[in-house]
Amino acid sequence: MADKSVNFLQNMTNISLKQKNYAETDETLEAKTEARLCPNCGAPRAKQDGLTHCAYCGYKFIETVLTDGIFLKKEDNSEHV
């Protein structure tokens, strides 16, 4: 009766294959790097005075206050607000 198992597997696999996969992740296969230009003054974002504000015009790239996280630290908050 090995057929019983083989048949079941075949039927189940066919049905499983037909089912759509839930919400494909949109994360890309490849890593990428990006720089953001300041939408206010057009300068590329620089890390001089923290990274939450534009070093040139003070535009807020990040509106929240950074805490000590994994790679981001409190020191990354820009000083002049």
């Binding site: 807020k60 790239f61 990040i62 509106e63 929240t64 950074l66 994994i70 790679f71 981001l72």
Partner: peptide, 12 residues
């Protein structure tokens, strides 16, 4: 909407 960027979000 929250005023953060992707690096902040992924840490959060």
């Amino acid at each position: 909407a929250m005023g953060i960027d992707i690096a902040v979000w992924e840490e959060v």
